[in-house]
């Protein structure tokens, strides 16, 4: 997985609460059994004039030239709620988003971000709104920075906003660690657990 250390990029504010994964990628846009080929379907319902069509809706942020090359998504509360589909994160990443800033995340979506090298950044609601306002004033130039190493968002006005993220997630993102490899290092402990647990709860093991 590609490490995430620090990113300065155009940010797209979509300041709605409860942006669910079906909005991020509608089910009908998940066309193959794979993790790629999804970015055209990203926000399809908002981005195109017609269901299944590809004619851009000119007023939607992703279609506006000042948001070209966007790398940071700014959203409202409970972002990524609804279906657990990881395709939402795969589509965001394929489009170019490497960080999502919001007041709160759906827990499954949050984990999916971390597992795919997309930094989920939780900031207070007022801070997110202020950041969105700064970006909207001049989207192409007002580029925030997400500095995961220092645990900071640097707003376009230069202010430093610290954020919290669990060490586990920070380290995984910084080093692009594959969680399966990490866990397999503890293979012996897992097997020892099973050996004990088989005695304690034999009915679990089919």
């Amino acid at each position: 997985m590609e490490p995430f250390v620090r990113l300065t990029a155009v940010a797209v504010p979509l300041m709605r609460d409860n942006i669910d994964t079906d909005i991020i990628i509608p089910s009908r846009e998940m066309k193959t059994v794979g993790k790629t080929g999804l970015c055209d379907g990203l926000f399809a319902g908002w981005r195109y004039t017609q269901i299944g069509g590809r004619e851009p809706r000119p007023d939607f942020a992703l279609n506006r030239p000042e948001y070209a090359g966007a790398g940071i998504l700014i959203g409202g509360d409970n972002i990524g709620c609804g279906s657990s589909r990881e395709h939402a994160v795969w589509a965001l990443k394929e489009y170019g988003f490497r960080a999502v800033i919001a007041p709160s995340f759906n827990p499954i979506f949050f984990n999916n971000c971390v597992r795919n090298g997309v930094a989920p950044v939780v900031l207070a609601r007022e801070t997110v709104e202020a950041l969105a306002a700064q970006v909207q004033a001049d989207p192409a130039r007002a580029r925030p920075t997400v500095d995961l190493e220092r645990g900071l968002v640097i707003a376009p006005d230069g202010s430093h906003i610290p954020f919290q993220i669990a060490e586990e997630h920070r380290v995984a993102l910084l080093h692009g660690l594959d969680a399966i490899d990490l866990t397999l290092r503890h293979r012996d402990e897992i097997e020892a657990f099973w050996a004990r647990d088989r005695q304690a709860r034999p009915w679990v093991y089919l």
């Binding site: 993790k35 657990s84 597992r115 586990e168 399966i180 990490l182 866990t183 397999l184 099973w194």
Partner: peptide, 17 residues
């Protein structure tokens, strides 16, 4: 509920982080 990558993790290791 988990994501697909987490499902891979659970299958490969029998555990989740």
């Amino acid at each position: 509920g988990i994501g697909s990558t987490e499902a891979e993790h659970a299958m490969a290791t029998g555990a989740l982080r």
